[in-house]
């Protein structure tokens, strides 16, 4: 593997199940799966609804808003692509629609992150993929 490739951050690529999510991301839309039978909204692109096990599903656009459920600050370099980033935050955001997503918070210093902080999605664009990041909505810092 070329050295430059080893040093870049891992960029995900869609598989068949997650393609609507990543296609939506490129268009600036945060997409979730909603069960046609019971209305439960889920994020991981699973064929079955975890509540009623139905496979009838529609992808829907989420509001993009949520709140910080919990967060951590990474100090170790487990992947060379993050060597220049440490210490960086990792957050679990609970979306307004219910599902939780793992991401990073932007526009806030690690010391100012609080649980429950309202956040909104913004997109970090790369060549062929866009990644959801979250920015605090209010500036109570």
């Amino acid at each position: 593997m070329a050295d430059t490739q080893a040093r870049s951050k891992p960029l995900p690529e869609a598989d068949e199940a997650s393609r609507p999510f990543y296609d939506g991301a490129l268009a600036g839309r945060l997409m979730l799966m909603r069960c046609d039978d019971c209305g439960t909204v889920r994020l991981p692109s699973r064929r079955h609804c975890d509540r009623c096990l139905s496979t009838e599903t529609t992808w829907v656009q989420a509001s993009g808003r949520g709140s910080v459920r919990t967060f951590a600050v990474m100090h170790r370099v487990y992947h060379p692509g993050f060597a220049d980033e440490v210490p960086y935050n990792i957050a679990v955001v609970e979306l307004a629609e219910g599902p939780r997503i793992v991401s990073n918070l932007v526009g806030v210093s690690n010391a100012d992150i609080r649980l429950g902080m309202p956040v909104e999605v913004e997109w970090e664009r790369h060549n062929d993929v866009a990644l959801p990041k979250f920015r605090p909505l209010t500036s109570d810092r």
């Binding site: 960029l11 919990t70 487990y78 960086y88």
Partner: peptide, 26 residues
């Protein structure tokens, strides 16, 4: 490249159990 939704973890720099337990502890 990490594939599918799980790729969001690697993209966020989320690696291994240490991260998971840090989130729970926090």
């Amino acid at each position: 490249r990490p594939r599918g939704m799980a790729g969001l973890y690697a993209a966020a720099g989320f690696f291994g159990a240490n991260t998971s337990y840090a989130l729970a502890t926090r």
